[in-house]
């Protein structure tokens, strides 16, 4: 299996975990641990001024010393807002330049705004950011983002939080086959088989949040995702059989007791 290298660091785990929507930090920490992930995403928001000074912060639970923290630009609808958010995130994380760029088109579909995403990618790459970019499953756009210099392309499986899985396997396969940078499916995973399919298609990893955080048992689902990703990854490497329209016997035809 090809190594997964992002911003000069090798990752053994192919799962990137979002930290939103958990019941509390304790559950977040347990899910992160059960998933075996090495990278987690965080959102950048105004500080809740007036909160207890000694109440824990998310980064006390998922420590930057132990995990790669991937700040996102979730909620941004323009390239300007996304770039501003990335710059704040970098200051927050002591100058780290790895970011997840996500520029959305509207709050109803949460579909990526490709025009603004391309614009923001160019600006961020020029500023020296290592951009992991959330985008549509359009192979042409994916290649354009790669040409701009993005570190990693992250096409959607389906809409954010929808749980619809990978809607267009052909596009994801096309993106993977044309890529010279890691391809990570981001968004749409509903259950373990969706993550497994992403890996069977040859993706380098899967990023998910809702499928785990909103499962009835998030910690168990985190573990299921870990195994599904490992299984899919091994299956891709092993190479699946060709599909045939009719049955092909597994047992020998000769030597049957009914042979005369």
């Amino acid at each position: 299996m090809k190594k997964l290298i992002i911003d000069n660091q090798e990752y053994k785990s192919r799962l990137i975990l979002g930290t939103g929507k958990y019941k509390d930090f304790e559950e977040t920490g347990k899910a992160v641990e059960a998933s075996g992930c090495e990278m987690v995403t965080v959102a950048i928001r105004r500080l809740n001024i007036g909160q207890d000074k000694d109440s824990p912060s998310l980064l006390d639970v998922v420590s930057p010393e132990k995990f790669t923290i991937l700040p996102n630009t979730a909620g941004c609808y323009t390239s300007e807002d996304a770039v501003r958010t990335c710059e704040l995130a970098s200051e927050l994380l002591s100058g780290k330049m790895l970011v997840k760029l996500e520029v959305l088109s509207d709050s109803k579909t949460l579909y990526p705004n490709v025009v603004e995403t391309l614009k923001a990618s160019e600006i961020l790459v020029k500023k020296g950011f290592k951009v992991m970019v959330y985008t549509t499953d359009d192979p042409v756009v994916a290649k354009e983002l790669e040409k701009i210099g993005c570190e990693c392309i992250m096409p959607l499986g389906s809409a954010i939080g929808s749980g619809l899985g990978i809607i267009n396997e052909f596009n994801i396969r096309e993106i993977v086959e044309n890529a010279d940078v890691p391809i990570i499916v981001d968004a749409g995973v509903g259950t373990a088989s969706d993550a497994c399919i992403a890996m069977e298609l040859g993706c380098d990893g899967v990023l998910m949040n809702t499928a785990i955080a909103c499962a009835k048992n998030p910690i168990l689902m985190a573990s299921a995702m870990k195994h599904a990703i490992e299984a899919g990854s091994k299956a891709y490497e092993a190479g699946r059989i060709e599909k045939t329209l009719r049955g092909v016997a597994s047992s020998p035809k000769d030597g049957m007791i009914t042979d005369d």
């Binding site: 930290t19 939103g20 958990y22 965080v42 500080l47 927050l92 809702t210």
Partner: peptide, 10 residues
């Protein structure tokens, strides 16, 4: 003045 922090997000 904007003071920001990292919170849970996907």
């Amino acid at each position: 003045i904007e003071i920001i922090t990292a919170i849970g997000g996907g």
